[in-house]
Design a protein around this nucleic acid. Sequence first.
DNA 1: CAATAAATGCAACATAGTTGCGTTTGTTTA
DNA 2: TAAACAAACGCAACTATGTTGCATTTATTG
Lengths: 167, 167
Amino acid sequence: MQQLALTPSFLGVKIDMGEKNLYTRCMNNKKTIGDLMHAHGLKKTPIRTGMLELFMAHDFALSASDIVAKMTAGHDKVTIYRALNSFEEHGILHRASEDGHGIKYAMCSSHCPDEPHTDKHAHFVCDVCHQTYCLEDVEVPEVEVSNEFSVSRANYTLCGICKKCKN
Amino acid sequence: MQQLALTPSFLGVKIDMGEKNLYTRCMNNKKTIGDLMHAHGLKKTPIRTGMLELFMAHDFALSASDIVAKMTAGHDKVTIYRALNSFEEHGILHRASEDGHGIKYAMCSSHCPDEPHTDKHAHFVCDVCHQTYCLEDVEVPEVEVSNEFSVSRANYTLCGICKKCKN
DNA sequence: CAATAAATGCAACATAGTTGCGTTTGTTTA
DNA sequence: TAAACAAACGCAACTATGTTGCATTTATTG
Ligand SMILES: [Mn+2]
Ligand SMILES: [Mn+2]
Ligand SMILES: [Zn+2]
Ligand SMILES: [Zn+2]
């Protein structure tokens, strides 16, 4: 079970190997990165291998441009985008936040503070019409978070089909 | 207290006046749109008045391009963006979702489905370094939502300062 | 090694949002 | 009511993010 397939010498990608536990994400059922791709009917190419190694070597989420920047061997961003889409379609990567179709604004209520703020209610984004509704009566629930993080705002967004698009 | 300042004849903006209750958002403390802007030290200009009328006439959030499209008198998008920023700074509008600095991806765990999915855990986005962390052990809390909406996914994002940036 | 489908690279494009700068306009105050 | 001033506007140019079409290359299978 040689796990050395993971040695990130590839492509000149510099990877800090400090956080071993990240490996468990894909290694804990005896899968190498290559096995993982093959299991999904994807080809094991240098770029895609390098990308997945990058993901395993970081404890935070990466954007397309993060990856373009970290891969030294000047690859085309189109390739990166297509690989990310493919990984997402196969459930190898998940997106760590809804992208949204641009920023949307809504009217504040009279008890809002006179400064930029996130409101205390949840929002709903329709997958069909992409409209965003303020759910004024749905409070954002609170959660317990490790005190490594100082939380100042919370955002709760539901997705699905809106009242208009259900018909 | 003539509220006719609200008649949205302005700029040829077409507004459906069906939903009176939306007016309460800024009218319930005897403020007209003009008063609202003046109270914040903003000038009452035709464009900004038209924009706020648009917001009051819709029960969903609007993007900059929504507004550009709905204002018939071809205004520059830069003006719209600057007005939105200004309204947000003054707590007149709030954004209905974090924009995020592009989509971020993270590795799925082994029990994720082999298809696109939103994960069941919360995420944390740092205001300083903009890094996104998966809070694998923080479950997204469930909420009760009006059955006008069919909810298929939920997104819970916390914002603040991350462990690295606290130092 | 040959066949095939997946992956890549390039060019061109689309959308969202920003910055600088000169001009116009709303509000205040004399 | 005219001048003064800051806020708001419009234009041009620019950055960032993401997409599409098409020709070429490469990984896998047999
Ligand atoms: Mn809202
Ligand atoms: Mn996650
Ligand atoms: Zn809808
Ligand atoms: Zn940070």
